[in-house]
């Protein structure tokens, strides 16, 4: 269930955007802020606030890479899978993450702490290979630097 403050925030976004559907992405991001994903129940509540059908809203939710319709971990590890990183062996970083956390791409650790996903080129090509953990960016990665970075979130 949406909290009263979430409802307020979404209403505010709808007002700011003028029309309900215009605020779809913002509203879905509000739902995700605490839960980290968008469950069916909240999707339905948001669609009512926006004045659209659940299908219209789900069409938007399922379109975007970073609106999640399934649970994800507390921390998102996003390793760049773009060509500039690939050339500098960015794809090998997956092995380090697997060794450290036991998860491959698309998987979440059993304790719900980490989800590991690919991300399209993040504009750190001059510092390849690169990744993001939540909002933080890391470039010039080596297995050692990946291990160091992960420690901060444990």
């Amino acid at each position: 269930m949406l909290t009263p403050s979430e409802i307020e925030e979404i209403k505010h976004e709808v007002e700011r955007a003028g029309r309900g559907l215009n605020a779809s992405v913002e509203a879905l991001k509000i739902v995700q802020r605490q839960r980290r994903w968008v469950p069916d129940e909240e999707l339905e509540e948001v669609s009512k606030l926006l004045g659209v059908t659940t299908h219209e809203l789900d069409a938007v939710a399922t379109f975007y890479s970073f609106i999640f319709r399934r649970p994800v971990g507390k921390n998102l590890i996003l390793v760049c899978d773009g060509p500039a990183c690939w050339m500098l062996n960015g794809h090998m970083l997956a092995e380090t993450i697997k060794a450290e956390l036991g998860i491959g791409l698309g998987e979440t650790t059993k304790d719900g702490e980490f989800t590991f996903l690919p991300i399209s080129c993040i504009g750190l090509c001059d510092k390849a290979p690169a990744m993001m953990i939540n909002d933080d960016v890391y470039g010039g990665l080596t297995p050692e630097k990946v291990r160091e970075a992960l420690k901060k979130y444990r």
Binding site: L21, K29, S65, S120
Partner: peptide
């Protein structure tokens, strides 16, 4: 400022406008 939620096609200008209207881009 509108921050998107991650899809390359949203960079194509007409997809971008559709996305800005809150629909699938």
């Amino acid at each position: 400022l509108h921050t998107s939620a991650g899809r390359y096609i949203c960079g194509e200008e007409t997809a971008l406008l559709t996305a800005l209207e809150g629909k699938r881009g």
